[in-house]
Structures are given as C-alpha cells and as structure tokens.
Amino acid sequence: MQPFTTLTAIAVPMHEANIDTNQLCPTRFNKVPRGPKYREILFYDSRFRPDGTQTEFMLNASPYDQSGVIVADRNFGCGSSRETAVYALYEFGIRCVIAPSFGDIFAANCAKNGLLALTLPEEECAAIRRQLQDKPGAKVSVDLAAQTVTDVAGKVHKFEIHEVRKRCLLEGLDDIARTQQYAERIAGFEKGYYKDRPWLGAAARQS
C-alpha cells in the first residue's frame, strides 16, 4: 500500500450530503479488475451522458480534473461496501476526502488503500467548501503526522485520527502480515472457544 504522509493538492467542494458509493462507482463497473480504468468510472453516471459524451460535472473540466482532495458534507461514502468506490477515487487521483462524517465501511476501505478519509466538524467543512467555491482550483494541505489541514486562507484545522489507522497510513502497512503474527493467539483462542461451543465444532459442519 502507498503510504500517506503529506499532500498539497487542488480540492473540489461537494456540497451534497450522503454521497453514496453507488455514485462513486456505479454497480455495473464493480466487475472491472482493479486498474487505471477506474479513473473514468469515478462518478460515471454524473460525468457521462448515456451516449458517452461528457456532462458539465465539475470533475470533467480544469481545474477539478486535477483534484487530489474532496471536501464534502456528512455521511460521504454511505451505502454499499464496494471497495471499487475507493479504487475509483484513487485512480482519479483523490488521496484525501474531508467530511463531517463517513460511511463506516467506506472509511475503513479508504484506510486499506492509502486514502485518508478525515473528519472535521460540519462548520469547518462548510467554511472550507465556501473558500473553494470562491477560489476554484485553490489547494489545501494535509499533514497526517501533525494531524492538520491547512485551508485556502492558511488557517490550520486540527483533526483526530485513530493511532493505529494513522500509523498504517504513514507506513503503508499491510495488516495481513501484522495479523499473521497473531496466528498462535488465534489458534489458542479457537481451542477455548470451541470447547465452550461444541456444536460449532471443527468450524462449520453440517449435520
């Protein structure tokens, strides 16, 4: 996984609440193998008409076709657990989404793919979106180690993030390797667990 450390990039404001993962990656594209094709898939049904021509959607034109950050409203990434929503953001070049809240599964999926889903209070997100609205193409900066966002006006916003999630992102850690160090603990846990639950027996067996 690509580590996330610092980022200074064009930020695109999205004012709508509850932007769901169906919008980020329409279902019919879920079967596409991971790769550069996902750049076009992001927000496909908003960006393209049925005949394939481009719409006026902001990500289609300069400066937002170069966006690295989305500043959104609450519950961004709600809905389906599809990780393809994150693949689409990533391939488009988005490395950070700032919002008052996220769909839980989406936020977890971001962390597993080197994308920072960071939470700021509703008013601060709204203030940054207004700045971006007034100055299209302006950049914001994110420093994960310092846990700060610097907005268009140079104001610094502190954000909270779980220590483990932060370390995994900073170092680009693969958590399966980390968990495999617990293999013996898991096997030990199973012994006690199944002793108390004989009907679950050696895993899932059918009568």
Binding site: F106, A108, N109, I176, Q180
Partner: peptide
C-alpha cells in the same frame, strides 16, 4: 459488512 481488503484479511486469518 466490509470491503474487499477487509474480507481478504478475514479469509487469510
């Protein structure tokens, strides 16, 4: 529910 990376983790561990 969970995404593909977390499910990969579950299947592996």
């Amino acid at each position: 529910g969970m995404g593909a990376s977390d499910m990969t983790h579950v299947m592996a561990t």
